[in-house]
Design a protein around this nucleic acid. Structure first.
Lengths: 215, 215
DNA sequence: ACAGAACCGTACCGTACGGTACGCACACGA
DNA sequence: TCGTGTGCGTACCGTACGGTACGGTTCTGT
């Protein structure tokens, strides 16, 4: 229900969830059986059901466990010029691509998408709210920092962020989810981030204000 | 593989595939059982296996069947001014969103993504190549038509198209795949397409001759 | 009219999974 | 030392699915 307790797990349970995550990454959802998790984690099925209720509870716990590892970024108020801001943006874009391309992220997204047809299961919502939310807020803070310093101009921060997201990710995420190996060439991410930020500044940048007259 | 026979199906088999598609849309992959398809389509399981080989063959046939419905768009050489071109682009963007948000597309993409973990099954490739390919080529032709008429400027057509795609879709596709209802508000698609095309012209348009001064 | 194929409906088989129950080992507080 | 609780390993149960086999029926070609 909506009032789900954000219960904390014991170290033992975290270890079990970690093993379950490895299983999921290795073999997809169908490899994630209760017996398999119990065997891989050296625990009993009975304990799994005692700790997580049922299989769906285990899945939800895995998502929560993974989300707990994501760290947020906040504006520390440090001074930032145009180049530093641009570097921050590029770094964020590259990090975003790296996260989306990671094995664990792909496996969890595939899992949640596979469950999305069942209306009663809200794993997708959970994944978005617990995982992506922090990234979004982090990016929002970064963009806001740039705006306060007059490096970019926009009215709707959310709109600006989503535009940046689209420029960076395009259809890469879906292609990676579909298993297209070419989409996961990590060595291309830096260039991808660079080009995306370039276009982002073309849309939102105010660099001509700094004396560099635009033709 | 590339040498896969594009075998045609009989009308009866197409009807069966259609029913299977309905089942998939209604209940997701787990609702797509051989017995269920046979029952819904009023055929025998034996016939299913005779026609499609096994369950994977059935899934592949469903994708091929659906892809056969997508029609391509080509440049008819008709005269186009800026406004008409912009309208075409906006229409394409809106169509793209409509397709991605359709029940059948979402169900098939969820299916292919669910199978993506198994390496031996290349449903994802099939889906991309047979379904998206036509849309991509259609958009490429449209962009090229605009370029030939001097309405937009770019060197790499693929890069320009992917940028347009990112501006239009952003993370909407994944959110819809995850089951987020808010992402499927069709009444917002027109505005979404409009804003995306607006930004696209800001990046690639040449209506003022300067466009974006190359740094 | 007749033979043969195609096909439907159903029954059947083996397997695998989710979930539960039980026996035993170990830890820990009184 | 003894009870109690936690948890591991295993066995077990019901169910559901993929895939196959078979009898009966309809369609088709000659």
């Amino acid at each position: 229900m909506a009032g789900e307790r954000q219960q904390e797990f014991t170290p033992r349970q975290h270890a079990v969830l970690e093993r379950a995550l490895e299983l999921l990454v290795a073999g997809g959802e169908k490899a994630l059986t209760t017996a398999g998790v119990a065997r891989a984690a050296n625990c009993s099925k009975e304990s799994l059901y005692k700790w997580f209720g049922d299989r769906d509870g285990l899945l939800a716990a895995m998502i929560a466990h993974q989300a707990s590892k994501v760290r947020a970024f906040s504006d520390d108020g440090a001074p930032m010029d145009h180049d530093r801001f641009r570097a921050h943006l590029t770094g964020f874009a590259q990090d975003l691509l790296e996260v989306l391309a990671s094995d664990v992220s792909l496996a969890l997204n595939r899992l949640a998408i596979g469950q999305a047809s069942r209306e009663e299961s809200r794993l997708g919502q959970l994944l978005v709210e617990q995982g992506r939310r922090r990234i979004d807020q982090s990016a929002g803070a970064l963009l806001d920092a740039g705006r306060r310093r007059g490096l970019v101009a926009f009215e709707d921060g959310d709109e600006a962020y989503r535009t940046l997201y689209g420029l960076v990710v395009r259809d890469l995420h879906v292609r990676m989810l579909l298993g297209e190996e070419g989409a996961r060439q990590r060595e291309t991410f830096a260039a991808r981030a660079e080009q995306a930020v370039e276009k982002f500044f073309a849309l939102y940048g105010v660099w001509e204000m700094k004396g560099r007259a635009l033709a």
